[in-house]
Computed example of a mutant assay.
Amino acid sequence: MKVVVVGAGLGGLTLAQGLRRAGIDVVVYEREEEQGRPQGVSLHFDDRGTAALRACLPPPHVAMAEATMGGPREQRLLLSEVEGRLVVERSQPLDGTAGVRPGRQVHRPLLRAVLLTGLEDTVRFGAEFTRFEQRPDGTVRSWFADGSTDTADVLVGADGIGSAVRRQYLPHVRVVDTGKRTLMGATPLRAVAGTGLPELIGHSPSNAQAHGAMMAMAVLRFSQPPVVARKEWLPALHSRVVADAEDYMMWALPVTKEVLGSAESPATVWRRAQEVSAGFHPTLQMVVDHAWPHLTVALRGGLIPLMPAWPAAPVTVIGDAIHVAPGFGGNLAMQDAHRLCDELVQASRGQQSLRAAIGAYEDAMRRDSFPAPDVTKGTPRMVPTPGGSGGSNGAEVST
C-alpha cells in the first residue's frame, strides 16, 4: 500500500509517522517551505492529542513532546481588577463540559519539529497540490504545480480549511467566514517577571474583560528545557526551534474583521493588538507591548457546516480540511490521523478492504466532529480556552 498525504500540519505528520512505523509507504506533500505558515505559537493539548502521539510516534518522539509540555491545565480563571490589582474573580473546572477538556499547553512549532523528525525523506516541501484523478485500477493520481505527479492507493487531504483536495473531492462542502478574527501572540516570560501575573494564574488558561473587550492568556513553562530534553530524548531533532524556545505567556484578543482591517504583516497585527489592549489593566497592556512581533498573527474564523455522509473512496480528508473546532482543531486533526492510520494498517494486513477502512474512519470522524445539534437550545457555543490554536489555514482559534 502507498499513501499520499497533502499537508504537513499536525494531522498530516502524525498520520505519516504512524503509517511509516507500520511499514506502509507514505509521502507527504506540503506547498509551504519547511517553516510553514504562521499559525500561532500555542496549542491546548488534551487526551485526544496525547493518545495520537503515543499510538503513532516512536517512543523517543513521544518522550520529547511530553517532556516539553507545560503543566496540567485543570481549571479556567476569570481575572478582574480590584483597587488597581488583578485578582482571580472565579474559576471553572476543565472537566469536559462546554467542550473543554483538561490538558497541557504545547509549543506548537516545537511539536511540529518533533513530528518532522525522521520524516526528512518523506516530506516534500514547496510542492503545491493542484488536482487528482481516480484511475480505473483503483489508484489515485495526484498532480502538483511544478508538473510532477504521484500515484498511490490512498490520497489524504490534510491541507487545512482551504483544502484543495476537499474542493475537488467534496465540492458541495462550503466554508463559512464567521467574521471573527483573533489576534494571537506570545511574550517572553522574563518580560513580565515581577508583575505577579504568572504566579497569579499558574498553568491555568485565564480571561480578562475590559470595556466590552476580552483578552485571554496562559503561561507555558516548559517542564524540561527543550535543549536539555533534546539531548536526553531526541538528539536527531535538529530544528532551531529548540534553541530559540523559552518560557513565555501566550495571549489572544478576539476581534472582528472590521476591527482588524487591512493589518496583515506580523508587525502591523502586533500594533493593532496594542491598540485593542489599550483599555486593559497596565500589566495586561505590558504583556502585549513586550510580545515578540514576529510571532503575532491574525487568525480568521471559519466554519464548515454539517454535511450529509458521502460514499467511501480512496480519497479522504482529515482535520480542518473537513471540520473546524474552535480551540481544539489540532487535537481533532491528530485524532483523525490516529484513527485513519489504524484503519489503513488493518487494510494493509488484509483484515478489511481499503474502502471499508476509509468508511469506518469517516463514520467515526463525522460522529465525533459533527454532533447532532440540540434544537431546544439553539446553536451551541463552545467556551474558548486560551493557549489553544485551533488549527491551520485560517481555522477559528480559541480565545
Rank of each mutant, 00 (worst) to 15 (best):
M69I: 08
G147C: 07
R124G: 05
P380F: 07
M1Q: 06
M1I: 09
R166A: 14
G378V: 07
D159P: 15
Q274L: 12
G378E: 03
A325E: 13
T399I: 09
P386V: 01
G70A: 10
G196F: 01
F144S: 04
P188I: 01
E34T: 12
L220D: 00
D25M: 07
V3M: 04
S398R: 06
P380G: 10
A191Q: 12
T97H: 13
A291M: 00
E89L: 13
E133W: 07
D47L: 12
G202P: 14
A243E: 13
P60C: 08
G388L: 02
M382Q: 12
G49C: 06
G84C: 10
A245D: 00
P226E: 02
A22V: 11
G96A: 11
T379M: 14
T379G: 08
D289H: 11
M215Y: 01
K231A: 15
R135F: 03
Q75I: 08
D150E: 15
L77R: 11
A8L: 11
S398V: 01
I318P: 05
E34M: 10
P235V: 07
P38K: 07
H172A: 14
D95C: 10
P60S: 11
Q209G: 08
D289I: 02
G49D: 00
R112H: 00
D121F: 05
A113L: 10
P386I: 00
T182P: 03
L284N: 04
V228E: 14
A245M: 05
R131K: 11
Q352P: 02
P136T: 10
A395V: 02
F144A: 07
N207G: 12
G12C: 05
V100H: 06
E264V: 13
G194F: 03
V3H: 01
A65R: 05
H338W: 10
P58A: 15
Q105P: 02
L344R: 06
V154S: 09
R135N: 13
D25W: 08
G388W: 01
E275Q: 13
E133S: 15
N393C: 10
L57T: 07
A8K: 09
T14N: 06
T182W: 00
S148I: 09
T122F: 08
P188N: 03
G196D: 01
L299R: 01
V315D: 02
E128T: 13
V165Y: 04
G390S: 07
G202E: 07
I201W: 01
A152H: 03
R366N: 11
V114T: 10
M365S: 14
V114N: 08
L10R: 08
A236T: 09
A278M: 08
R367Q: 15
G301A: 10
Y361F: 15
